[in-house]
Amino acid sequence: MTLTRRTIPGFAALFSLPLAWVLLLMVVPYAIMISVGFWTRQFPLFYPDFQFGNYAQILADPQYTTVILRTLKIAACVTVCALLLGYPLAYFLVFTVRSQKLRNLLYMSVIVPLWVSYLLRAYTWKIILGTDGALNSLLVSTGLVSAPLDIFLYNQTAMVVTLVYIFVPFMVMPLFTVLDNIPRRLIEASEDLGVGPFMTFWKVIFPLSLGGVIAGATMTFCLSFGDFVAPVLVGGPDGTMVANLLQTQFGAALNWPLGSALATLVLALVLILLQLSSRLDRAGRVDLA
């Protein structure tokens, strides 16, 4: 006789526990958030309702659409910069550093900042870029400029720089993993067939690392899309991002229905992005065995 899952009573109990967890702490809050998005507000109270006024307001008011577009733009910039920085770094770690010990050490030094407080890491850039900051001291002391400049801080470039610094490990990690998993034999085979290192990179290494590029880009993009600290610390007056708007709606503006609608939109955007990235990943997936 075979034991079916049904015949083991503990089995169901064991696996319903995480299910209850997901239900209670994820599905229910999301359901609440989505439904509150349809409520109406009569300051200072909200009433249950089913109407699309909040969404209409978001899409009609350029204040919101501008911020959403700006957030998309900044997240895209951060992703591209992190890729341009992270890929060469991961490549260097995997293919150039010969000693396993040194490689692990360097890799850890990329990852370790993740253990340092996120706020602290963002704050670092305020210190570096400020008028009395490290960058200005350097420029003044080398005589490149006569007086400290205030152009470095409180703008979108400063936000991109800060966010790239904070999130670049999330780009390097998947890239390091995929590059490290490419069999060295394939690179040797390419060179054996008369193909030099440069074309070997474009025809063998890069295509086989696309999975890591997609994973890293998705993570970096989603994380910077939802960021609200960099705008506050190093962003200027035109630095507000979606997450700051959300914060305002739920806080100072006390407009939960509008905030919920906005959050639902953001959630939808991120879900679409994740879906896209997993499609891309599946299309390009190859069996390395």
Binding site: L186, A189, S190, V204, G284
Partner: peptide, 27 residues
């Protein structure tokens, strides 16, 4: 010289024809 590797080392992201034509494409 060209090599037949012990584990073949075929490019997994290319078709059979692309694998064979690979050495004729670049140099």
């Amino acid at each position: 010289v060209n090599t037949v590797f012990q584990d073949y080392a075929l490019f997994p992201h290319m078709s059979v024809a692309e694998n064979i034509g690979y050495g004729l494409t670049v140099r």
